[in-house]
């Protein structure tokens, strides 16, 4: 059954790649403004952008070719696994994405893991005595943190940990110490929501009839929680974490900008301004594939934890 899910997802990923790339191409081409000028500004900067530079870019990149011809070229290259070169830097798109998406993925994975380490215990503590001090404090703190733009949270952490305590560097990349502040900022922001999901999920399970029945039946706490609580409350948490992971990759731009982190969010914003179509297509395509992968992983984890849905389907098919 799992193989069937994976096969279906592979087909989805391929069709999604073509659809996302095509959509990006036509949407970018429909934006107002002359692409040659935008690319020239991206390449030569404010002081170097001119009509002469734009004409040179147009001639070099064949931007005066019919749009459909350009699209077919891209599609032909895609089927040869060639994402082309960036219109701005001239470097292969795959190299740029590998570099930048790699850094964003590292940031996102670390942030989601750290967020889980913060959110799960906090959520369970809050669920232990709902509407009491810990739960209420967690609610107000979470709401306060979520109300902050992630940028200002990052600034506060930088002022405390980089300027006052001088524990971590302010910005940059290349070694572990540069990772800590951006990860901490993202993780706190994510945990502010996910601890409430954990709390709600835990309360639902702990108050459920099957949990209460197991308790009355005489099962002791560690075994009771591990056997009947953990698995049941994990399913919505895993599903939510998967969504959060996707959200982080999409919305990490402010963190990357603040901490001078060379991620895909910042690269993508520059590509939009410069109308760097191959870069936009390549990034959208790779992110689409990544999202299909994360969703598949989330579904597979949920299916492993709770095989009931699959058994029902198998029963229906029998």
């Amino acid at each position: 059954m799992l193989i069937k899910i994976l096969f279906n997802r592979l087909l989805q990923a391929i069709s999604m790649a073509v659809a996302v790339g095509s959509l990006t191409f036509f949407l970018v081409r429909s934006l107002p403004g002359d692409i040659a000028y935008k690319v020239a500004a991206g390449r030569y900067g404010d002081d170097g952008v001119s009509t002469e530079a734009a004409n040179a870019v147009r001639a070099e990149l064949g931007l005066d070719q019919p749009i459909f011809e350009q699209y077919l070229n891209w599609l032909g290259n895609l089927f040869q696994f060639d994402l082309g070169n960036s219109l701005v830097s001239g470097l292969p798109v795959i190299d740029e994405i590998q570099h930048q998406l790699g850094y964003t993925a590292l940031l996102a994975v670390c942030a989601v893991i750290l967020a889980s380490f913060i959110a799960i215990p906090l959520g369970l503590l809050a669920a232990k005595k709902p509407k009491k001090v810990i739960d209420q404090t967690s609610l107000y703190t979470s709401s306060f943190i979520r109300a902050q733009p992630v940028f200002s949270l990052g600034l506060i952490l930088t002022i405390v940990f980089a300027i006052e305590l001088n524990w971590f560097p302010v910005a940059g990349f290349g070694s572990t110490e540069f990772l800590i502040l951006p990860v901490l900022t993202l993780a706190i922001s994510l945990a502010a929501v996910s601890n409430r999901i954990v709390r709600d999920s835990a309360i639902k399970v702990l108050n459920s009839q099957y949990y209460q029945f197991a308790k009355i039946k005489g099962l002791k706490e560690p075994k009771l929680f591990l056997r009947h609580g953990l698995k049941n409350m994990a399913i919505p948490i895993i599903a939510f974490t998967g969504m959060q992971f996707i959200g982080v990759i999409e919305g990490v731009i402010m963190i990357e900008s603040l901490f001078a982190w060379p991620g895909i969010g910042h690269a993508l914003s520059h590509a939009v301004f410069a109308r760097d179509i191959p870069m936009l297509q390549g990034t959208a395509l790779m992110m689409g594939i990544l999202f299909v992968f994360i969703n598949t992983l989330t579904d597979a984890c949920c299916a492993l934890l709770d095989p009931r849905g699959e058994k029902v389907k198998q029963g229906e098919n029998a």
């Binding site: 930088t158 002022i159 300027i163 302010v170 910005a171 990357e256 900008s257 901490f259 001078a260």
Partner: peptide, 12 residues
């Protein structure tokens, strides 16, 4: 190092 934001550069 490219520091995108003025605030970050100042803190650096």
């Amino acid at each position: 190092i490219t520091g995108h934001r003025s605030e970050s550069r100042a803190m650096m």
